[in-house]
Simulated scan of single mutants.
Amino acid sequence: MTLTQEVRRRRIVEAAIDCLARDGWHATTLAAVAAEAGISRGLISYHFAGRDDLHRAVLESVAETIFGAGSEATQARIDAATSARDKLAAYIEGNLRFIAEHRREMAALGQVMPNLRRDDGSARFDDAAEEPIIAGTALLFEHGLATGEFREIDPRTTAYALRRCIDGAAVKIVADPGFDIDAYARELTALFLRGVQA
């Protein structure tokens, strides 16, 4: 792929993200994306096999930003913390801060994840797809148990509860532009730290 083709492909993906975030899944047609990108619909067909192919590219792009860059930034904060309590606080605050800084991508992700299907028609995202995130979060609670800072808890159940709270904030911040995610981060951090303390 030439540099020009790569730039054009990237522009199409960015236009699709804008359409998904602003107009939703059903309104994000190839024609709408072409209009957003300022190109012909035929040019999209040159780069993508169809709407699903484009949406998969959107998912890859957003996942790279959200799960790649977001994980790296949050992990750096966690690694810098010395206690299990501080690591948990860094995890919560880092995730929510990243969500706040990437509303557009979160809105697009919220449209793609429940709607994108496999070839057999089944949902592309199910419990198995979330397993690595839950397992990684559970490690924080396992660490707190090992150091004696956390009371006896089930790390996976607690990790699942925390992820629901973080993912819920991602939905809320898209639906409500006035949502105070900083206040939410403070309350959620305090709630979990008090809830797990030994």
Rank of each mutant, 00 (worst) to 15 (best):
F67W: 14
F179M: 09
G38L: 10
R8W: 05
V58L: 09
D53W: 04
S122L: 09
D127S: 15
Q197Y: 08
R164D: 06
A169E: 00
L193F: 06
A27R: 15
S83M: 08
Q5C: 08
I133A: 10
A34C: 11
E14N: 13
R124C: 00
A37R: 00
H102R: 09
T65S: 10
A57G: 10
F98T: 00
M113I: 08
L188H: 02
A76V: 09
N95D: 07
L30V: 04
A21R: 00
T157P: 02
R194P: 01
I66V: 12
D120H: 09
R103W: 00
D180G: 08
R10P: 01
G94V: 02
D18T: 08
A123T: 01
F125M: 10
E6K: 13
E60W: 07
G195K: 13
E187N: 13
A135T: 11
R156F: 14
A31V: 11
H47R: 04
S122D: 13
G178R: 11
A84Y: 01
L109A: 06
R104Q: 14
V13Y: 01
G42P: 07
A129Q: 11
R194D: 14
S45D: 12
R117C: 01
I66P: 00
A138V: 08
A37Q: 04
F48P: 04
F48L: 09
Q75W: 07
A129W: 07
G148P: 09
